[in-house]
Simulated scan of single mutants.
Amino acid sequence: MNGKEDKTNSSEVLERMSLGELKELRKKLDRAISNYETRKRQQALSALEQAARDHGFKLSELISDRPSGRSKSKAGEAESSGPPAYVNPDNPEQTWSGRGRRPRWVHDALEAGRTLEEMAA
Results as ranks from 00 to 15, higher is better:
residue 81 S to M: 07
residue 37 E to N: 07
residue 107 H to S: 05
residue 84 P to T: 10
residue 86 Y to G: 01
residue 45 L to F: 04
residue 99 R to V: 10
residue 100 G to R: 02
residue 80 S to I: 07
residue 85 A to I: 00
residue 59 L to M: 14
residue 26 R to H: 08
residue 45 L to D: 07
residue 54 D to T: 05
residue 12 E to C: 05
residue 76 G to R: 04
residue 94 Q to H: 15
residue 103 P to R: 05
residue 29 L to I: 14
residue 23 K to A: 11
residue 114 R to W: 02
residue 10 S to P: 02
residue 63 I to V: 15
residue 24 E to Q: 08
residue 65 D to I: 11
residue 7 K to G: 04
residue 98 G to N: 01
residue 58 K to A: 13
residue 47 A to F: 02
residue 27 K to G: 08
residue 3 G to R: 12
residue 59 L to H: 07
residue 60 S to P: 02
residue 89 P to H: 01
residue 119 M to V: 00
residue 20 G to E: 15
residue 77 E to D: 08
residue 28 K to Y: 09
residue 72 K to H: 11
residue 11 S to M: 11
residue 86 Y to C: 00
residue 61 E to V: 04
residue 99 R to M: 08
residue 120 A to Y: 05
residue 64 S to D: 15
residue 121 A to V: 15
residue 6 D to Y: 09
residue 38 T to S: 14
residue 92 P to K: 05
residue 118 E to H: 00
residue 84 P to Q: 08
residue 49 E to R: 13
residue 103 P to S: 06
residue 115 T to W: 01
residue 55 H to S: 14
residue 18 S to K: 03
residue 28 K to M: 13
residue 109 A to Y: 02
residue 15 E to F: 10
residue 104 R to H: 09
residue 79 E to S: 12
residue 113 G to V: 03
residue 16 R to E: 10
residue 110 L to M: 04
residue 34 S to M: 13
residue 107 H to D: 12
residue 42 Q to D: 15
residue 14 L to F: 14
residue 5 E to F: 07
residue 11 S to A: 10
residue 34 S to V: 07
residue 101 R to P: 00
residue 97 S to V: 06
residue 86 Y to L: 02
residue 23 K to Q: 12
residue 76 G to S: 07
residue 98 G to E: 00
residue 55 H to F: 04
residue 11 S to I: 09
residue 65 D to H: 10
residue 10 S to H: 07
residue 104 R to Y: 02
residue 9 N to V: 08
residue 28 K to G: 06
residue 119 M to T: 00
residue 102 R to L: 05
residue 19 L to M: 09
residue 50 Q to I: 06
residue 92 P to Q: 06
residue 76 G to K: 02
residue 72 K to I: 14
residue 77 E to S: 03
residue 95 T to H: 00
residue 105 W to K: 01
residue 56 G to P: 03
residue 29 L to N: 11
residue 47 A to Y: 02
residue 70 R to E: 15
residue 51 A to N: 09
residue 23 K to E: 09
residue 30 D to Y: 06
residue 43 Q to I: 12
residue 107 H to N: 11
residue 15 E to M: 11
residue 105 W to E: 01
residue 58 K to F: 06
residue 96 W to R: 01
residue 108 D to S: 12
residue 6 D to M: 12
residue 42 Q to G: 08
residue 2 N to F: 09
residue 70 R to T: 15
residue 39 R to S: 15
residue 91 N to S: 13
residue 24 E to K: 11
residue 109 A to K: 15
residue 112 A to T: 06
residue 95 T to I: 02
residue 118 E to L: 00
